[in-house]
Write a protein that binds this DNA or RNA. Structure first.
Lengths: 203, 203
DNA sequence: ACCTGAACACCGTTCAAGT
DNA sequence: ACCTGAACACCGTTCAAGT
């Protein structure tokens, strides 16, 4: 809707796409809608995003991922850093809930925007005493788990209004828990996972 | 492609949709394609799936979920059952990789098809000595984690052919690991999580 | 009762044409 | 160089019409 007449650019296209997605969801993010956001016709976008819609959405994933990576500062202590990574990632994803499914579907783009961070985490694990293979596995598990958990939460919040209709008492309980927010569940799982990893060190 | 002239039904429509998705992915699963699979016109589907495409896809999720639930038999020992749940769920999802993203996006449908199983797991945890709240949290964490891990793997396998193009050595390593299969990573994470849960029992 | 043809309002994308 | 109008081959869905 912004009728800014700044010249179009790849960054402005991607930024507009993110704005549309945050507001209307992925469904609402058509090329025509993004163009409208920029006060332009759909066909103009292709000059700045030659790969079309796929490249535009890859750009959105990279922006969200970079936003998160730049806000995180590590200490070198594996447990502190793994904990901080998971919490900060979750927080970043929760501020763009409609993008989480896209990130889950584009792991190569997500990885590309965070190799430095992942590498640092990974050497913190090695410095902490984990064998190289286990360090790699642990980081991958934590990152997958964080994305998966947050995606499940975002999806459940979106289709959770039906919770009232649920006949099963357990279903009603779980979905009203979800509606109240799942920070405690996330932290419960995170702590269990990190405890389990730490136990490996002594073994 | 099957030109069977058995009468159409909701189940046949959903089954055809699953077949199309397994073969062509979600992108290829248009109403016209599903109709073609049944030798029928697109508009005929709406008589058996009045809710349209959304209801059809909900049906696909329910079928995959039910397939899994019916194949799993629990023992009552929390650790054995949590382990079996995660492994069997992962195996079921891996046999329909194109459906995993849909399951992740439709937690209410997935839950609905498995309340009995989740309830049983949950009482096994309580019988094992976990407080009610922790039992609920643990089951939710495990289920989310399993879906999230397998979704990440399925997605990475799909866009992983680009791995050769990666410039970053760490990226190349991770993506060639993924291409070799991630059973060991999954099991590593699963064991750590269950170890972490077990540690809570003694505390 | 069950199926369908034609139509509507959308998509992503191409390409030749405008400035 | 950058933007666009018209067009193409697709979508999901509605509805009145066929059998």
């Amino acid at each position: 809707m912004s009728t800014d007449r700044a010249p179009l650019s790849r960054d402005r296209v991607v930024e507009a796409a993110l704005a549309v997605i945050d507001r209307q969801g992925i469904q609402g993010c058509s090329m025509r809608a993004v163009a409208g956001e920029l006060g332009v016709e759909a066909m103009s976008l292709y000059h700045h995003v030659p790969g079309g819609k796929a490249e535009m959405l890859d750009g959105v994933v990279a922006v969200v991922q970079t936003e998160f990576v730049e806000g995180l500062h590590l200490t070198g202590d594996w447990r502190v850093d793994m904990d901080a990574f998971a919490r900060a990632y979750r927080a970043a994803l929760k501020s763009h809930p409609n993008v989480v499914a896209m990130i889950a579907a584009r792991p190569s783009v997500a990885y590309r925007s965070s190799t430095t961070l992942v590498g640092a985490l990974f050497t913190a694990m090695e410095d902490g005493g984990f064998p190289r293979d286990d360090a790699l596995r642990a980081v991958r598990v934590l990152s997958r788990w964080t994305i998966g958990f947050t995606l499940g939460e975002a999806s459940a919040l979106e289709d959770g209004e039906q919770a009232a209709e649920f006949d099963e008492p357990l279903l009603v309980e779980v979905f009203s828990d979800i509606a109240r927010g799942e920070d405690d569940v996330f932290e419960f799982g995170l702590e269990a996972l990190l405890d389990g990893l730490e136990a490996r060190l002594s073994a």
